[in-house]
Amino acid sequence: MSSSVDVSDRTKRRLEQLQAAVEEATGREVSQRELLDRLVGEGYDSKAAFVASFRDAGESDSDDWEGLSEDERDAFLAGTSDWGVETSEDEIDRTLYGK
């Protein structure tokens, strides 16, 4: 039986990152189906803890942003440079918003 499940972009990205980590650590290719089978299996085997994780999470944590990783922050900041000029908030507002 084959079916599909719509997942958020964030979940898809995280699944791909997990897949890459498993492949790097094990040296073998792993399909996303294998990952999902294993994740669901582990959740099923630990039903009480899995159900409790929903109780503890409140309404919905699916939209909570976890922030950037240290590598992502470093990559972002690598594109910046200090021109040695102090810029005030008013100057920034004038430049961005014409105020």
Rank of each mutant, 00 (worst) to 15 (best):
E23S: 06
D37R: 04
V22Q: 04
S62E: 15
G79K: 09
S53V: 00
D37S: 06
E34D: 15
E24V: 06
A25G: 08
V40D: 10
T11D: 15
Q17H: 08
G58T: 01
S60Y: 01
I92A: 05
D74G: 09
G79Q: 14
L35I: 06
G27H: 15
A48Q: 13
T26R: 04
G41A: 09
F76L: 15
G98K: 08
G98D: 14
R14K: 14
Y44M: 03
L77Q: 14
Q19P: 00
S62N: 09
F50D: 07
Q17S: 13
K47T: 06
G27W: 06
L77A: 15
T26K: 09
E34G: 01
S88R: 00
T80S: 12
L96C: 07
D74M: 12
I92T: 14
G67N: 05
L96M: 13
D9Q: 08
A21I: 03
G41L: 06
D9V: 12
Q17R: 12
G79L: 05
G67D: 08
D6N: 14
D93R: 15
L39M: 06
Q19N: 14
M1D: 13
G79R: 06
L15F: 10
V30S: 07
R14G: 11
G98P: 07
W65D: 12
S8P: 02
S2R: 13
A78I: 13
E72I: 01
D63Q: 09
R73L: 13
G41W: 10
A49I: 09
L68P: 02
R55L: 13
I92V: 13
R94Y: 02
A49T: 03
E89K: 04
T95P: 00
D93K: 11
E66Q: 11
S69Q: 06
L35A: 07
S46M: 02
V5K: 05
R38C: 05
R73Q: 15
G98H: 02
G41T: 09
V85R: 01
D9S: 10
Q32E: 12
D56V: 07
E66F: 07
E86D: 15
T26A: 14
E23N: 04
V30A: 11
S31I: 06
G43H: 04
G67H: 11
E29K: 14
S2A: 14
V22R: 03
S88H: 08
S4G: 04
K47M: 09
E70A: 06
D74W: 05
S31V: 09
E72K: 06
R28K: 02
R55P: 01
V40I: 13
A57I: 02
S62D: 10
E91W: 00
D74S: 15
D63T: 07
D9P: 05
Y44N: 07
S60V: 03
A20M: 02
A25E: 11
G67S: 11
L39G: 07
E72S: 03
D56N: 11
D74K: 15
E89Q: 11
F76I: 13
R10H: 07
E59L: 14
R10M: 08
R28T: 09
I92S: 01
Q19R: 06
D71K: 04
